[in-house]
Design a protein around this nucleic acid. Structure first.
Lengths: 132, 132
DNA sequence: CCGTATCCTCCGAGATACTG
DNA sequence: CAGTATCTCGGAGGATACGG
């Protein structure tokens, strides 16, 4: 029988729960990396108005060309944004969120506010734990 | 001036947004790793009833002693669970979520369901993208 | 039983340089 | 302008062995 706790599926074997790693976790993994949320937030702020590569780069402190490219490619691969290439000289490339991409950050907002509310406590716990 | 989009803070410089990496993102990073959510889910299922190290290990498919230990230590460090050591022979160690820990997965549930709803589409996009 | 100690491999991610 | 191509380093995470 398939059961769930807080949206996480698990099996029951010999009356004991069994949890398994699963692929959809890769979505959380991506969101947890250093740049993904910043890129998506910048695009969300543009709100349908497309942004150029250079605009994104300037709007995200410390990101390198390479990491921006990788982050954008991953998001494109997942269908969260659309890349549009204009073969001009010099070249121009514009990015915008897909509908699915635009729906992602709002869906995350509940948890974002949990983090904001609990962050001071977490930081405090880390300090306490680390001094020993 | 401090502004926000979907709970993400950013600055405004020369009328352009500027996003920066921030420390609270480490919470998402941890949740994105391979084992953290599985460990927390198992503890959440126990619902206040404490679990032994070996119970956790048996209930999470494929986890090694080392990774379970590391995951538990990180969660303890963040104040999300409590570790209780009983100096018996053989030794016994029990774990349970703190109140903050117990509130975490429910806060994440909205986004979990977003993932579940959009996962088929994401998988499809990846396949399409990968064949070229 | 509940870990720690080693060793190893792989990949994320930064720095830097080059190009259509 | 918007990228690749290399190189490098460190840390995540697995396998295995040992210890209180």
């Amino acid at each position: 029988m398939e059961k769930q706790i807080h949206g996480r599926r698990y099996e029951e074997r010999n009356n004991k729960p069994l949890f398994k790693p699963c692929a959809p976790n890769s979505v959380l993994t991506r969101l947890g990396d250093k740049w993904t949320i910043l890129v998506m937030s910048h695009l969300a702020l543009a709100d349908g108005h497309r942004l150029r590569f250079s605009e994104l780069k300037q709007g995200i402190e410390g990101i390198t060309q390479r990491m921006l490219t990788l982050t954008l490619r991953n998001l494109e691969r997942d269908g969260l944004l659309i890349r549009e290439y204009f073969p001009e000289v010099p070249p121009r490339v514009e990015y915008q969120l897909t509908d699915m991409g635009a729906s992602m950050l709002p869906a995350l907002e509940g948890f974002t506010s949990w983090i904001r509310n609990n962050w001071p406590s977490i930081e405090e716990c880390r300090k306490t734990y680390d001094q020993r």
